[in-house]
Design a binder for these strands. Structure first.
Length: 319
DNA sequence: ACCTGTCAAGTCTGG
DNA sequence: CCAGACTTGACAGGT
């Protein structure tokens, strides 16, 4: 089975290449002239896209096919202060070029709306702003010309003191989403509230692919053994054009167990590979480590010394 | 050039 | 009921 590795948003190798530059609401509101204000937003957005393109060149040079876009590509895109700004029109040609490169090199693109995007909030205004955020991410993919193989990764949300009803509310709201949004959403287990088993059940019910986060599973489980669920988790991807994806990170330390370490611990990763071997199916690994792409290269280096593993190129292995 | 407090957003906990 | 933690890259103001 073949495993492709990727990383999140920014590189530790390419310098001065943030795709997430922004501006604060405070400093933006100090600008009186509308034109100057729009220019500020527009130039930050363009810089972010340009830097993402530079990261794409870097990814191409290092055989990296799996990449998560920053959610902050367009500064304050869903904030009321930019309401009058038609950002899509201003940067469409830049986005289009970015997407063409991604498609040309078969990149597998994803994005991860942050934890303020909550489809199961009991408050309608939170649901509405979450919807707005999903639409924002969709427009980025759309502008890039990506098809539904580009995925959004979401968590289920809060428990609101009644997990059962909160799951029901999630499902109700998820099903109501327009088709074009629903078909790009994948659901991930989190480190505090919704376990891998619970998310799997939701995924099966709403027919969404599940992204398994191994680190989150260690933080939050009811004693379930992953190997019992792995096959069914991967099966949620059966109708997709892309292989299943998992998230991999290592705990910072015993005390700050939920925090991400700089790099990936080899032993726990190979332990997972043993379990995955039984299913014998290709999958993608999103490395979520402080050292970003460097952590990916470090892990690949470590894997070179593991028996039965062939390192195919700088970012993929055969096992 | 470097340092430090602050930042759009929600939820949960502890006081 | 409210303040603070959560988490984290980047801004912004100061030196």
């Amino acid at each position: 089975m073949r495993i492709n590795f990727g990383y999140v948003a920014m590189s530790k190798v390419v310098k001065d290449c943030s795709p997430s530059r922004t501006v604060t609401v405070k400093s933006l509101s100090k600008i009186e002239d509308d034109e100057v204000r729009l220019h500020k937003l527009k130039s930050i957005a363009k810089t972010n896209i340009k830097n993402t393109q530079r990261l794409f060149y870097h990814n191409r040079a290092h055989d990296i096919k799996v990449y998560r876009l920053t959610s902050k590509l367009i500064p304050l895109a869903t904030h009321p202060i930019t309401e009058k700004w038609d950002w899509f029109k201003d940067i469409y040609s830049d986005l289009k070029g970015l997407g063409e490169y991604a498609k040309e090199h078969n990149f597998r693109i994803s994005a991860h709306p942050d934890h303020y995007t909550l489809l199961n909030s009991p408050k309608d205004e939170i649901l509405q702003s979450s919807l707005k955020d999903l639409i924002y991410h969709y427009k980025i993919f759309e502008g890039m010309g990506l098809d539904k193989s580009a995925k959004l990764v979401l968590h289920i949300g809060g428990s609101y003191k009644d997990k059962k009803r909160s799951i029901e509310r999630f499902i109700k709201n998820f099903i109501k989403l327009p088709e074009h949004l629903r078909e790009i959403i994948t659901l991930e287990n989190d480190d505090k509230t919704y376990t891998a088993k619970e998310v799997l059940e939701i995924c099966q019910q709403v027919k969404a692919p599940m992204v398994l986060d191994i680190h989150h599973h260690w933080c939050n489980n009811n004693g379930e053994d992953l190997s019992e669920y792995l096959e069914r988790i991967f099966e949620t991807w059966n109708y997709e054009d892309v292989p299943p994806k998992i998230h991999v990170s290592s705990p910072k330390d015993e005390k700050k167990f939920r925090n991400h370490a700089d790099n990936i611990d080899l032993d726990s990763f190979t332990e997972f590979l043993e379990k995955a071997k039984k299913i014998n199916r290709d999958f993608d690994v999103m490395i979520e480590a402080k050292n970003k792409d460097v952590a990916l290269f470090n892990l690949i280096d470590d894997l070179k010394n593991v028996p039965n593993i062939d390192v195919l190129d700088q970012a993929s292995i055969e096992y």
